[in-house]
């Protein structure tokens, strides 16, 4: 069990607006963790900080014992919430791209998952439906053998059957040395798969507990607790 993410008094301000306010957070390996919060709570800011797409205003953040940067990115597999795919590429080209930049990329696993969706290496990315494009992005990320997977809204905007696919892929890829951090607001679909949840609101961590702890202590599902905590 190792520590994959540590935030200490992590703060990010945009001008006068404080997106994250002295966050303390610690994520350990071998877990599937939900980052839950309403829009504007600071989820996206935290995710961008983990990936080095933003720099902290104050406080510290270490990812797999490194500051976010080229070294930490080797260990992080990130699925952003919009497609980052280059439309003119074929599936083979984007796989080669990932293979080139990430040593831990498992090509065979990727092609296997593509085949199950009926996607061949020669398929042009622009010919794929929106749902399939998202699945391709997910497959590329899950084919990495990373330590920290950060999935930003992997099931929003996706049909229920595809959601099941996403969830099975996540479970199937489980690795006790790695952790999957899922940021979402569709909690009821994903609750069962989570070990732990972190509630975030207005730039503060409100709660960090296991799902079973929450259900036992509150006699309700995480989804119901969320609605209660974040009631308008």
């Amino acid at each position: 069990m190792s520590e994959l993410l540590r935030c200490e008094k992590l703060t990010k301000c945009y001008g006068t607006k404080t997106a994250l306010d002295e966050i303390d957070l610690c994520l350990e390996s071998g877990k599937i963790i939900g980052l839950l919060g309403p829009n504007g709570s600071g989820k996206t800011t935290l995710i961008k900080l983990i990936n080095g797409l933003l720099t902290p205003t104050s406080g510290s953040i270490t990812v797999c014992s490194e500051k976010p940067g080229p070294k930490s990115r080797v260990n992080v597999a990130y699925l952003p919430d919009n497609s980052y795919l280059n439309n003119w590429m074929t599936v083979k080209k984007i796989v080669d791209y990932f293979k080139d930049f990430y040593e831990d990329f498992r090509e065979d696993l990727a092609y296997e998952m593509f085949e199950r969706l009926g996607i061949t290496p020669e398929t042009r990315l622009k010919s794929l439906s929106k749902g399939n494009k998202e699945k391709v992005c997910l497959i590329l990320v899950m084919s990495r053998n990373a330590k920290l997977y950060v999935l930003d809204e992997p099931i929003a905007g996706v049909d229920p059957a595809a959601r099941d696919y996403v969830i099975s892929t996540i479970i199937n890829n489980y690795n006790p040395d790695a952790t999957v951090l899922i940021s979402t607001h569709l909690i009821s679909d994903i609750e069962q798969v989570l070990d732990e949840v972190v509630f975030i609101n207005n730039g503060h961590i409100v709660l960090q507990k296991t799902v079973d702890q929450i259900r036992e202590e509150n006699g309700k599902s995480v989804d119901d607790l969320f609605r209660e905590v974040f009631r308008w």
Binding site: G30, I171, Y174, V193, V211, D212
Partner: peptide, 14 residues
């Protein structure tokens, strides 16, 4: 553990 997790739709740790 993995197969059970997938068929039950739950976390492997569970």
């Amino acid at each position: 553990v993995r197969d059970m997790a997938i068929s039950a739709g739950v976390n492997p740790n569970t």
